[in-house]
Design a protein around this nucleic acid. Structure first.
Lengths: 195, 195
DNA sequence: TGCATATGTCAACATTCGTTGACTTATTCG
DNA sequence: CGAATAAGTCAACGAATGTTGACATATGCA
């Protein structure tokens, strides 16, 4: 016998494609409808596969959600950014993550889910603690680091909520350059300015 | 026959009490769990009444939600506030609404629900258009009114999301006075400052 | 008191959901 | 080729949900 211990693991190229299709459908639906309103059947229909395949590949709806919302912010090294432009850089980077070509709806999915799930909220806190705080630690005053990180969170999350979830008209109407110009100074103050 | 056209309308004092109990239970649950995860049975259990009573008094779960999230921001008249303190006043007012003694979880309920419901998101947009914009119109430059209202939205909603939904630790740790001090200047700039 | 109306209880409904297991088809490899 | 394994299909399950209607009880008025 061949020593293949694993059964039903996605090995072939074809399976990778359907797996990716499920993942993409899930990301789109989670991002636009949140966790509860997104059903396994909806995901399967959009991916044009059988609902049972979702279970085969991801174990459960929660497993699928965990995979669909795993991502890396790829935050910049702020020590390599001209100090007066840190605020603008940060705002631009987040908007790029949300709207840029490589964007999937991951962060927005998580944010939507966090509204009714402590697990999702905890995932966002982990991202902040593990990615945003370390980034700020390189340029912000150490004794105010967490406070400043919290302030950054309020502005960044507020932008995301207003623009992508609540869809507040004037916020939706702003283009990326405007967002950088208008929110950059606030961000600058939160990171390295006088509080 | 008596010409009473309506049947089963809450007329007696006793019914008003149970009606209020249902409403309070609903507000608490909607605020902490969001719309989807809050079941009619949960509300009934917390109010110590029968699930059928919820339907009798509010028609449907959606009807209950609509009643539980109807509220008035009671925003201040900014023309009576010293101009340099407008920002601090606004931040303090919102925190008071959210945490003060007369607070019910209405706004937070709506915010949670908006994550997965376009109707709820639209309700928040209506509140902004009907209450926040008119308030700002009395002190903000008219040609930038909507843009400034949008910026105010990003900061206020961001604070609410970070503090009450995501529960970002440093944001939760700040007391009201700190919030006013830290976010006041940003608010000030968004309302009457140089953009 | 006695009738009418409001208030509350109970059980059941139809539907939808996540999940499972048996089955069939396609693919790989000796 | 032909056996073994992966990929995909199908029908059904048990549980939970919003909602309904029949029924029982309490209350107010003539």
């Amino acid at each position: 016998m061949t020593d293949r211990p694993a059964r039903d693991a996605g090995k072939t190229a074809k399976s990778q494609r359907t797996r990716a299709a499920i993942l993409q459908a899930a990301q789109e639906l989670f991002a636009t409808q949140g966790y509860e309103r997104t059903t396994v059947r909806d995901v399967a229909a959009r991916a044009a596969i059988d609902p049972a395949m979702v279970m085969r590949y991801f174990g459960s709806k929660e497993g699928l959600f965990a995979r669909a919302t795993a991502f890396d912010l790829q935050l910049p090294d702020l020590t390599k950014v001209a100090r007066p432009r840190i605020g603008e850089t940060l705002v631009g980077h987040f908007v790029e993550i949300w709207e840029g070509p490589r964007s999937n709806g991951s962060l927005i999915s998580l944010l939507r889910a966090a509204a009714s799930s402590d697990d999702a909220a905890n995932a966002i806190r982990t991202i902040f603690g593990g990615q945003v705080v370390p980034m700020l630690a390189r340029v912000a005053p150490p004794d105010e680091l967490f406070q400043r990180a919290g302030l950054v969170a309020t502005q960044i999350m507020g932008l995301a909520v207003s623009r992508y979830i609540l869809k507040v008209p004037p916020v939706v109407a702003m283009d990326r350059a405007q967002l950088v110009t208008l929110l950059g100074p606030t961000m600058q103050r939160f990171v390295v300015g006088k509080l």
